[in-house]
Amino acid sequence: MSYHVQLEVNGRRHEREVEPRMLLVHFLREELGLTGTNVGCETSLCGACTVLVDGAAVKSCTQLAVQADGASITTIEGLATNGELHALQQAFWDLHGLQCGYCTPGMILAAADLLERNPDPDDGEIREALKGNVCRCTGYHNIVRAVRRAAEGGAA
């Protein structure tokens, strides 16, 4: 059984026939070739697969592609505009907010969701907002600094 889905990803429309069981993350990675969104667990707990669905951070491993039918999605590939890095991307680079980079796309999109809701978070609020995203490299120290820097620069 296949199901027709149509959605907008990073401003481009896509239509596909998919198996209903296909996870959104596999749709993005394997149907659209947008491999910036990563998979790190199977229990919705690592956050590596976080994308924005209709503006809200979502773990794309815990959503079926068919559920996202009609939605507008932003992945890490769509965050920069006209070649200019998003303030969060810039801050992660400037402040060494990443090492291996595997958690980074999800981390940045989770942070983008936070700054959308709370443009001026303190460190405690940043840490709470990122609790669903595991980074094994940085110990979170520079990630927190980077999100704060982005907020100060008006990332939202």
């Binding site: 809200a56 951070a57 773990k59 815990t62 989770a110 969701d113 907002a129 609790k131 669903g132 995203n133």
Partner: peptide, 9 residues
């Protein structure tokens, strides 16, 4: 509950 992304869904 959970984390922000979980609460979004």
């Amino acid at each position: 509950i959970g984390d922000p992304a979980v609460r979004n869904r």
